[in-house]
């Protein structure tokens, strides 16, 4: 039932979400480490964004607003429930996560790297995604995650050390 005629904050956020969704979903995956929980978190985050649409200022960074909102939703509300339902015990299954059909654009090592990233602890995965996949600076990532910059740096250092140990020290992993 719709009786709001003009373009509302709700419409603006809905349109932004349609474009932003793939980035939101992969962040949800980095947080939850599990495909179906990622679907659930992404859905909850979309609904929360719609609910809070009037708090979003058009023309500002939708991506940052959305990542922060999702992060808070996960930490404050949904993670507890996920942990209660066995959330700490997720297993990463390649078939579940990546398209295993040959794709010349993404080599096999690339898939392995993704799986190794997904095997990192949640905090490291999320930080690594924000900095190396999303391209945020340390200070922007710290701001989104609401943690000190030093914590961002130590998460990245530990994650990098683990990944390099797995693949050996080389400048080109792929």
């Amino acid at each position: 039932m719709k009786f709001w005629g003009k373009k509302t904050a709700h419409d603006v956020v809905k349109k932004e979400l349609e474009i932003f969704f793939p980035r939101l979903w992969r962040y949800c995956l980095a947080l939850t480490g599990d495909r179906s929980r990622s679907d659930d978190l992404a859905q909850a985050a979309c609904l929360r964004a719609i609910e809070k649409a009037d708090k979003f200022k058009a023309g500002t960074h939708f991506d940052r607003w959305m990542f922060r909102l999702t992060q808070r939703l996960w930490i404050n509300e949904i993670r507890k429930e996920a942990v209660r339902n066995g959330g700490g015990l997720s297993s990463i299954d390649e078939e579940d996560l990546v398209d295993t059909k040959p794709d010349p654009g993404v080599n096999l090592l690339g898939r392995e790297v993704l799986l190794e990233v997904m095997r990192l602890p949640e905090a490291q995965r999320a930080t690594l995604l924000l900095v190396y996949v999303e391209g945020y600076s340390y200070s922007e990532a710290a701001n989104l995650l609401e943690i000190p910059i030093g914590t961002v740096m130590s998460r990245l250092a530990v994650a990098r050390s683990k990944l390099v140990k797995k693949y050996g020290s080389r400048s080109e992993v792929g």
């Binding site: 979903w25 990546v98 190396y132 990944l163």
Partner: peptide
């Protein structure tokens, strides 16, 4: 500690993204 971070970013292209609600 030297990791090819571009490869990490690229690896995410292999992800099957979930369906938008």
């Amino acid at each position: 500690l030297r990791l090819d971070t571009k490869q990490v970013a690229k690896s995410f292209e292999a992800l099957k993204i979930g369906k938008m609600p």
